[in-house]
Design a protein around this nucleic acid. Structure first.
Length: 554
RNA sequence: GGCCCCAUCAUCUAGCGGUUAGGAUAAUGCCCUUUCAAGGCAUGUACGCGGGUUCGAAUCCCGCUGGGGUCACCA
């Protein structure tokens, strides 16, 4: 028998959790996300929303949205609305929330202020918390000293904890502002359960008496969070790993109130390329960015579910429903996943390619509509504001250019979709496999609806071919096209075969023969397939473009 | 720095004591090809290190190292 080290108690705890787990899995879970309306809706919020919602759906429970707007200094007016919209865009709908209501509302913390005040008062009355009159100056000075001394204990020293009732009363009479702090234990370890980790232990001596109620009467996150989670019947708190450090405080708060603590499950943090916590400077973090760039919501959700979770049999492309059928909290991988935009781009392309022409056309139409009138937003940005990462910088530049083009052409493209539906649909097969994002359609779609290319003779010359060669090829091509029956089912093969014959006759490589026509027809060297494009455009437009190019060349 | 978390290819990951360590993205090469894609095929690349436990460790334990998070009257 070997009973070594300290692993016996830990094992015992794990065993205990595991035996409880199956029982709990069948209970409907009430879960929530609690974002703050302080800026653009964050990709991390969507990530947490996904895993929370999955647990709710899996257990036939409820998923709620609560707005944590207790910080008046960081409040951003539009933010809340954008959170609603982004979650809806992603299909991560919530059962209860500020804009949909529910039985335990209000779902906005600024509307629940009396609750927190009362809760804090209750703790003061029961001796679990106390009023602290320390000034900001004192706190700052304290912090400075602690840092200078590299003191083991960082944080509030608990001075006001020992104030007599008389002193408290006098301070209050004098109108001194105060905060309410929780009395944290000072000895021993604080051990808290975490669904993924078994348990996490913190030395109590490292803890400080945290502020629960600010001097402006607003609660801190910690107080509001616990009061609301309890009042709203939250059973599982699935949140980001950055919250582990406040686990002891939350645990002590539940204890102080005498409430049952929810199951905590701390998910890994999404990371930048350098492994640091995902951030605006190093990665697009705004959900609005992903929508504007033309990512499909289902692809983004799929991608997010790949962060820390994987399906059986190496399946990587799957719907939310199939994700759900396999989902389980204990399949979550705890290593911090790097958010890899390149892979998301690939995945989005996969989704795009699986869309039927009608569906793709509709998505492109909606996307163009979304960008309409927003040209100025997509103006080039100065070098110093561009991302440092070369891949991202490059993509961002292209994305701005694409978005600008789509925004400019929005009226034309929307009219085309509405009034030339057949033509619009027949273009879809030609662009679909070239797309990774919807905005990339800017490179392939417009040529079918506008022909104002600004071309010069040099544009028709190749590496080894002259404008004169180009002219010869174009004239030959015009001849072929002029005779071609566009309506015939074999038109493509005919044109291809005749083109090859003529190329040989002219002593040109097949590629060099078709290249000038490509420029003439599509306005670019890189384009959708030439012959198919001509067929979609029809004989008169094709000839018009060829003639114009021929006229342009000497 | 204190405390806490984490650790399989460059990246996302499979693996839960016995595998030629699998898949995907990216990269490279070839094929297909009128451009660009998409697609097909192929190649290289990983169990951080050191101790245990065991007949046998990527898998279990400990230590180290590395990375990350957190140390507010912000969330």
């Amino acid at each position: 028998m070997h009973f070594l080290h300290g692993d016996v108690p830990r094992l015992a705890q794990r065993t205990c959790l595991y035996t409880l787990a199956p029982l709990m899995a069948d209970q409907p879970a009430r879960v929530r996300i609690a974002p703050s309306p302080t800026g653009d809706p964050h990709v991390g919020t969507a990530y947490m929303a996904l895993f929370n919602k999955a647990l709710a759906d899996k257990t036939r429970g409820q998923f709620l949205l609560r707005i944590e707007d207790t910080d008046r200094t960081r409040y951003v007016a539009d933010s809340e609305k954008q959170i609603f919209e982004s979650l809806r865009w992603l299909g991560l709908n919530y059962d209860e929330g500020p804009d949909v209501g529910g039985p335990v509302g209000p779902y906005r913390q600024s509307e629940r202020l009396p609750l927190y005040k009362e809760a804090a008062g209750q703790l003061v009355a029961s001796g679990k918390a106390y009023k602290c009159f320390c000034t900001n100056e004192r706190l700052e000075a304290l912090r400075k000293i602690q840092q200078a001394e590299k003191s083991k204990h960082q944080g509030y020293d608990g001075l006001c904890r020992s104030l007599t009732p008389d002193e408290v009363a006098r301070n209050e009479r004098e109108g001194k502002p105060y905060v309410i702090r929780l009395k944290m234990p000072r000895e021993g370890d604080i051990v808290v359960a975490d669904k993924f980790r078994g348990s996490v232990s913190f030395p109590a001596s490292d803890q400080q008496d945290a502020v629960l109620l600010k001097s402006d009467g607003f609660p801190t996150y910690h107080l509001a969070n616990i009061v609301d989670d309890h009042a709203m019947g939250i059973t599982h708190v699935i949140r980001a790993e950055e919250w582990i450090a406040s686990l002891p405080l939350h645990h002590e708060l539940y204890k102080a109130f005498g409430w049952q603590e929810p199951v905590f499950a701390h998910m890994p943090l999404l990371r930048n390329k350098d492994k640091s916590k995902i951030s605006k400077r190093k990665n697009p973090t705004s959900l609005l960015w992903y929508r504007d760039a033309g990512f499909l919501p289902e692809a983004l959700v799929n991608f997010l579910s790949l962060m820390g979770f994987s399906m059986p049999n190496d399946v990587e492309i799957f719907s939310y429903d199939s994700f759900l059928s396999e989902f389980s909290l204990d399949k979550v991988n705890l290593g911090g996943p790097v958010f890899n935009l390149e892979k998301l781009l690939w995945l989005n392309g996969e989704y795009l390619r699986r869309l039927a022409p009608e569906a793709l056309a509709e998505r492109i139409y909606s996307h163009v509509k979304l960008l309409m009138g927003r040209e100025r937003e997509f103006a080039d940005v100065p070098e110093e504001e561009q991302p440092k990462d070369t891949f991202l910088k490059d993509f961002e530049q292209k994305r701005r250019r694409w978005s600008r083009r789509l925004a400019e052409l929005a009226p034309v493209l929307m009219r085309a979709y509405e009034h030339q539906r057949g033509m619009f649909l027949s273009v879809m097969p030609l662009v679909t496999e070239r797309l990774h994002t919807l905005c990339e359609a800017a490179d392939y779609l417009p040529m079918f609806f506008v022909s104002d290319f600004d071309l010069k003779p040099e544009d028709f010359a190749g590496k080894k071919t002259s404008p004169a060669d180009a002219k010869k090829a174009l004239v030959a091509m015009r001849e072929i096209v002029g005779r071609l029956d566009f309506a015939h089912s074999g038109a493509k093969e005919t044109l291809d075969a005749e083109g090859r014959t003529r190329a040989e006759g002219l002593g040109l490589k097949v590629g060099d023969f078709f290249a000038p026509a490509r420029v003439a027809i599509t306005g670019a060297r890189v384009s959708p397939p030439l012959i198919e494009s001509m067929i979609v455009l029809g004989p008169s437009e094709t000839l018009r473009r060829l003639d114009r190019a021929i006229a342009l060349l000497p």
